[in-house]
Design a protein around this nucleic acid. Structure first.
Length: 421
RNA sequence: UCACGAGUUUACAGAA
């Protein structure tokens, strides 16, 4: 039957459904028995050529032959209704599939959530989810996972996300790792630290495994919100719960300390990291480097550069971006250019961030013509200036009293429809 | 034979 199926599939996909059916006719007459797959191909063929009305005949034939539709057949039927926006029929099939003891697959959930979550219908997706619950329909965690994932992509849905995730947990379901991570990240971004931490603890309390990425996202979110106390609490909890930290965890915590100028603690964390067998990586070094730059301690910063080199690591564009910006903030253009040269010698290409930093350097010195020179270089190299480029340039122009020039740039931005924020 | 697609850390501007 396999060669038949292959041929029929090809025919269906090139719109020659009739011929596929004729082939199936020969199978039935002959010795080769069609299988579920055969019918799956035919149903897909009918759907592709918009002849869904004929599907019921196919289903009847299957029944006559004693062939039970499997998950794929259901997915095809659900897919058709999903694309046509026939939500109730789609959900009926979903329920039927479950009641016949079939497990919906990831494809099923994607099809359903896609239909439910179509543009502007997010509320509907939520409502349907709740209706399913109330009417005793089977709601698998996969459906929750997909609906929440869709919700997360839309602004202003955080509350729903929290509620649905809470409902999942209340029903003993576990949100998948990517979902948990996204959920926690978004919650933290929205300043909902207690909620984020709460979910994390709750999942652990239920005895579920929590991905390291999720825990890291939580700690990062808390650090970003300058909530080092809570971040430390979570870190401690990870250790006591036996969750293995990784170098990313350390890097996040180090960055958190550095941002708060707690260099001793940052160094302590790095020591701890090494003690546990992790080598500081580029992220670690770049983070320290930035911290020293921010403190105006350029010797210390360069010391980090030397150290990372001697560890066999290669400084990357971020390393140089940090150093160059550090010198530019100190109005030391000469040094900045020195590292610009080193960067190119190491086979790296300056990017927008580097140029933006240089513009800031010239600007701080009141050297607007050189700042404009950098902008010209960018354009010459075919590099797209960013909103940062323009706001920085305008700022330093105003600072130097060149308000009219700044206004000209501003008008150009509007003309080019550049969003300055 | 059916849909789509993956999560965590480091550099640049402005307002307070």
């Amino acid at each position: 039957a396999v060669p038949y199926n292959v041929l029929m599939d090809a025919l269906c996909k090139s719109g020659r459904v009739e011929e596929a059916f004729r082939l199936k006719g020969r199978m039935v007459d002959g010795t080769v028995r069609p299988t579920v797959v055969t019918f799956g191909i035919l149903i897909n063929g009918l759907a592709l050529s918009n002849r869904f009305a004929e599907v019921s005949a196919v289903l009847r034939e299957m029944e006559d032959l004693g062939i039970t539709p499997n998950e794929v057949i259901y997915n095809e039927l659900i897919g058709w209704h999903s694309r046509k926006g026939h939500c109730s029929e789609m959900l009926r099939l979903f329920d039927e599939m479950v009641s016949k003891g079939m497990k919906p697959t990831a494809v099923t959930y994607n099809l359903i959530s896609k239909a439910l979550c179509k543009e502007g219908e997010m509320e509907r997706a939520e409502k349907i989810l709740e209706e399913m619950l109330l009417s005793g329909m089977t709601v698998h965690c996969g459906l929750y996972n997909t609906v929440i994932a869709w919700l997360l992509q839309r602004p202003g849905t955080l509350d729903s996300v929290v509620r649905l995730t809470g409902e999942m947990l209340a029903r003993g379901m576990k949100p998948n790792g990517a979902l948990m991570t996204a959920c926690i990240r978004e919650l933290c971004k929205g300043g909902k630290h207690q909620e984020a931490t709460g979910i994390w603890f709750e999942v652990l309390a239920k005895g579920f495994h929590v991905d390291i990425a999720t825990s890291n996202a939580l700690i990062h979110g808390l650090c970003e919100g300058n909530n080092m106390k809570e971040a430390t609490k979570v870190l401690r909890a990870m250790v006591t719960q036996g969750i293995e930290l990784d170098s990313i965890t350390y890097n996040i915590m180090i960055q958190g300390c550095c941002k708060n100028r707690k260099m001793e603690e940052a160094i302590q964390l790095r020591d701890d990291m090494i003690r546990r067998g992790f080598k500081p990586d580029l992220f670690t070094f770049n983070t320290f480097l930035r911290a020293y730059c921010n403190l105006g301690k350029m010797e210390e910063a360069i010391n980090q550069l030397d150290q990372l080199k001697s560890e066999g690591l290669k400084p990357d564009i971020v390393t140089y971006g940090t150093i160059i910006d550090g010198y530019c903030k100190l109005k030391n253009i000469e040094k900045a250019n020195e590292y610009l040269t080193e960067l190119t010698e190491n086979g790296l290409k300056p990017n927008v961030v580097i140029y933006n930093a240089l513009i800031g350097g010239h600007g701080r010195k009141g050297n607007i013509s050189d700042a404009i020179g950098v902008l010209d270089t960018m354009k010459y190299k075919g590099m797209q200036p960013t909103p940062v480029t323009y706001t920085s340039l305008m700022h330093w122009m105003c600072y130097a009293g060149l308000v009219e020039e700044a206004r000209t740039i501003f008008l150009q931005c509007i003309e080019k429809k550049i969003q300055l924020g």
